[in-house]
Design a protein around this nucleic acid. Structure first.
Length: 622
DNA sequence: ACTTTCACG
DNA sequence: ACGTACGTGAAAGTG
């Protein structure tokens, strides 16, 4: 038996690494006689759980003073020792970022997700419920290292970061190190063990912290249900039309190169280098001043701003639909940059990522972070399926329903406005929603009278967004393109018609100041505000409550037996795949789960049934 | 590591 | 007193 000793918060802790079947007997003695819960972690060859070569290397178990690193990779009795633990263990498992280890153990140890889910408390979820901010926003950070440093021991080692240094000393990289480091490497084993000891120590501290800030157990349980649902969706994944994706990648490369060649004629070697492009454009006699402005717009660091707005204007194209704007002479360099850059982004970020992440069965498994944003919103990575272009079906066309199935997309109708009406108890708004009116049309009529125009409606929609986002007249004018006077008039009228919004904002801000700058959501979520952006409280309240509407709807869907159809949550939308003949029923059931009362405001949803590809729900049929 | 840009809700 | 657009992930260039 290898043993390693280390100090954690002044205590001597021990990491045991069994080397013989005889050593494994001691491991069993430990867990059989343990009378508490244990922390669990795994080390693998990489993050790509669903790829062909992915392997499980070690499984670690521990309490606050002891860790056992079981070398699964050795096979035989070592594998049996782990399997026996899971067969007999009936108490809690503490896991930091559980969905990853769930996937690993399901795939490599053949465990049932339900078994693991029922036993797990995820310390990362608990930490995010105490403080959902990312480190760059002033939070502690959700990974084990900063949390351990904060809650347990400021000198806790950076087990991941320090290992990267070890990888380098062995001639390995961050990418190859996890697979290539020898199984017996002392640092690897010590750190593998420390991770579970730290997780075991983190759990009670987080329980304390949750109770101190007043997060109720029901919210913790609800988050764990969502963790499960999202893990099921990740595990199931989505069918990729691989041939289409390959062809698409090729076609995009072609476009990218063709327009890069045009840009090169003007001395631009990279379409992603704004500095070069600005220089070339100035050399062509452009002043980079947008209509209505008196000087070129600059970035915070003092460079010329050369984003889509500027480039589309220079190319005389409409930013929204890409058609000719006919307001100036098109600049050919600007147009080439737009086209090459877009094709490059779509290829690299989407088409190629599909092909890089697809599993041997032709499925992609997006990682769904069920509790990611500081408002509680979910995020999706590898690939980032929440951000596929929607202006064109080209990219979404690559993702398919199951064979013989169709895609169903169901989205909440104006969820954030409805949530605002409910949370702030906006009387007139509630009345309009209950009467089934188009909210922005209703507002336009109240503000501009019965002879309001579509422009007035658009403006009122913009003001509504402004209210939800906390924007002012300047931004709303810029976003809607409406004249400043109209915007100001609409805002004044809006405040008259819906006075409760300002009152709620003031109340939420006041309460936050009295509560360590934290506003508490309708579901009891802690939402820390930035001191210099207290106005964002309206957005945090709305975005967060809307996220919980989606969360509750997902839980209801699972309870109604719809889990197998669910593919992806997209903030106010749920994407599903169902057999053609069941599509109507599934769509209706999903829609019912997304239809409910929220403090007297009806929350509604619309379901759309497409064809086999996700793209069929966008633009022309496929 | 930071900045800029762009894809989404 | 007044006004402030919100939340993400990803790629590439810059220094």
């Amino acid at each position: 038996m290898r043993t390693y000793r280390h100090a954690v918060a002044g205590d001597n802790v021990t990491v045991f690494v069994p080397e013989t079947p005889g050593d494994l007997v001691h491991f069993k003695d430990w867990w059989v006689h343990s009378n508490g819960d244990v922390a669990l972690d795994t080390e693998t060859t990489g993050l790509d759980v669903f790829s062909d070569g992915h392997r499980l290397r070690t499984v670690q178990f521990g309490d606050r003073n002891t860790a056992w690193v079981i070398h699964w990779e050795r096979g035989g009795r070592f594998v049996e020792a782990v399997v026996e633990f899971f067969r007999r263990w009936r108490r809690r498992l503490y896991i930091h970022n559980a969905p990853y280890d769930w996937m690993v153990l399901c795939r490599h140890a053949g465990l049932r997700l339900e078994y693991l889910v029922g036993r797990t408390r995820d310390t990362q979820v608990m930490a995010k419920l105490v403080d959902p901010r990312q480190p760059q926003e002033g939070g502690i950070g959700a990974s084990l290292k900063p949390l351990s440093a904060f809650y347990i021991d400021p000198t806790a080692p950076d087990t991941q970061g320090d290992l990267t240094a070890v990888f380098r000393s062995l001639g390995l990289t961050k990418a190859t190190g996890w697979a290539g480091i020898p199984l017996d490497h002392p640092t690897y084993n010590l750190y593998a063990g420390l991770d579970v000891i730290l997780t075991a120590r983190l759990y009670p501290r987080l329980e304390e912290a949750l109770s101190t800030v007043g997060v109720r157990q029901v919210l913790v349980d609800y988050e764990h249900e969502l963790l499960h649902i999202c893990a099921e969706m990740t595990r199931k994944g989505m069918v990729l039309d691989r041939e289409y994706a390959e062809t698409l990648s090729g076609k995009l490369t072609e476009v990218e190169d063709r327009y890069l060649a045009v840009a090169q004629r003007y001395g631009v070697t990279s379409v992603n280098a704004p500095k070069q492009i600005a220089e070339a454009l100035l050399g062509m006699g452009e002043d980079l001043i947008l209509p209505g402005a008196t000087a070129p717009e600059m970035t915070p660091s003092g460079a010329y701003k050369l984003d889509k707005n500027v480039l589309f204007f220079l190319a005389d194209l409409d930013v929204k639909d890409g058609t000719r704007a006919n307001v100036r002479k098109p600049n050919p360099l600007a147009e080439a940059v737009i086209r090459s850059k877009r094709a490059g982004k779509w290829r690299k970020t989407y088409a190629d990522t599909f092909l890089e992440t697809v599993d041997p069965d032709g499925r992609v498994h997006p990682v769904i972070n069920s509790l990611q944003a500081r408002t509680g919103r979910m995020s999706v990575t590898r690939p980032a399926l929440q951000t596929l272009p929607s202006s064109d079906q080209m990219i979404r066309r690559a993702l398919l329903a199951e064979e013989g199935g169709v895609m169903i997309s169901t989205d909440f109708a104006a969820i954030e406005m409805r949530v605002l009406a409910a949370l702030a108890d906006v009387k007139q708004m509630k009345r309009a929603i209950l009467a089934g009116e188009d909210l922005h049309e209703y507002t336009a009529r109240l503000v501009f009278g019965d002879d309001f125009t579509p422009k007035h409606r658009k403006l009122c929609k913009g003001v509504g967004f402004g209210k939800v986002y906390g924007g002012g007249a300047t931004t709303i004018a810029r976003q809607t393109g409406a004249p400043m006077e109209d915007v100001q008039r609409a805002i004044r009228a809006y405040d008259r018609v819906y006075p409760e919004i300002k009152r709620a904002s003031a109340r939420w801000q006041r309460e936050a100041y009295a509560n360590r700058m934290v506003t508490v959501s309708a579901t009891g979520r802690q939402l820390p505000l930035d001191r210099d952006r207290a106005y964002a409280v309206v957005n945090y309240q709305c975005q967060s409550a809307a996220r919980d509407c989606l969360g509750q709807a997902l839980i209801d869907m699972k309870e109604r037996g719809l889990m197998e159809y669910l593919r992806l949550p997209i903030h106010d939308e749920v994407l599903a795949s169902a057999p053609k003949e069941d599509a109507e029923d599934v769509a209706r059931a999903i829609k019912e789960c997304m239809t409910f009362d929220l403090f007297g405001v009806p929350v509604a949803a619309d379901a759309e049934i497409g064809k086999r590809s996700w793209g069929s729900l966008y633009g022309a049929d496929v």
